[in-house]
């Protein structure tokens, strides 16, 4: 669905942001895109959607070059940005204006998602809604477009606590077999039990790109008061309940992925961890 090869990118008169970046993403998965500030997560989403152009390398999205901004490609991509544009219209007019651009748009789904987010009136002017409510409308609309590729940049920022849960349920309920959802976020807790793969960016490149299944097979996540003397974790850090640890999963034990711990571990022990996955 998305193929990126040896991609370089920098903004005019700025330092290199992405260098020799290679990434292949398949349909039927929800990908979590993680990285420190300024690593180029949002830029990568912009490159995928053709909003900025690579300085070197190739990108192929749904069989198209994003730079060409082909309408057949754009009608199968929906991008929910972190910052919202000005919409001087009501929710119902937003639907009236933009729904016809997306052939697989489903109005019933939109209404259902709005109800779940407790937005009762479609007559409300979008510009008069709070940032969180605007985000809910855009998430609901984005999901209802049923595009093959759904890009979300910090979708849970500004959402209240119940809405974060609703967001997770909505995204998880989407029929995913031919879809690819990429969620870029710093709110890693919001992605727990939602994503199928974790992509971590560091130093202008993709440092890690593995399915959650593969992570669970290779790594074991534990938390205890202290590190047992006979154990040698790959990475450990202090947590509220003691010490959070990552081990090589030699005995094929099951554990829940601690995304934050994995992220910190990768930054500290990237060679050790990446080597485990390379083998």
């Amino acid at each position: 669905m998305i193929t990126i090869n040896n991609l370089d990118f920098h903004y005019p008169q700025q330092a290199q942001l992405l260098e020799s970046l290679t990434l292949h993403l398949q349909a039927g998965k929800i990908h979590g895109l993680l990285g420190k500030n300024g690593e180029g997560k949002s830029t990568l989403l912009k490159l995928i959607s053709g909003l900025v152009f690579p300085t070197k390398g190739q990108i192929n999205v749904l069989g198209f070059k994003p730079k060409e901004r082909n309408p057949e490609m754009l009608q199968d991509i929906y991008f929910i940005p972190e910052e919202f544009p000005e919409f001087p219209v009501s929710i119902s007019n937003l639907e009236k204006i933009y729904a016809p651009f997306y052939p697989k748009y489903n109005g019933e789904q939109f209404n259902k998602y709005l109800n779940e987010f407790e937005i009762s009136s479609k007559k409300s002017e979008l510009n008069k809604l709070s940032q969180g409510q605007k985000k809910k409308v855009m998430i609901a609309f984005g999901l209802a477009t049923n595009t093959k590729l759904l890009l979300m940049d910090e979708p849970t920022n500004g959402l209240d606590i119940p809405s974060k849960g609703q967001f997770r349920r909505m995204v998880a309920s989407v029929e995913q077999s031919d879809k690819c959802i990429i969620i870029s976020t710093h709110q890693v807790r919001d992605l727990e039990n939602l994503i199928d793969s974790i992509i971590i960016m560091e130093q202008h490149q993709i440092l890690f790109n593995q399915s959650t299944e593969s992570i669970c097979q290779k790594l074991l996540f534990k938390e205890s008061e202290f590190i047992p003397e006979d154990k040698n974790p790959i990475f450990a850090e202090k947590s509220l309940r003691g010490v959070a640890q990552i081990y090589e999963n030699i005995d094929n034990e099951s554990s829940t992925i601690d995304i934050e711990l994995l992220f910190n571990a990768l930054l500290a022990e990237k060679y050790k961890i990446c080597q485990l996955f390379d083998n």
Binding site: S49, E72, L74, F79, P81, E83, P85, E86, F101, Y102
Partner: peptide, 15 residues
């Protein structure tokens, strides 16, 4: 305006 520009270019039509 960055967000408005992004929204404009994402509308599925030819330039």
């Amino acid at each position: 305006h960055n967000a408005n520009g992004m929204h404009f270019f994402m509308i599925p039509t030819k330039q």
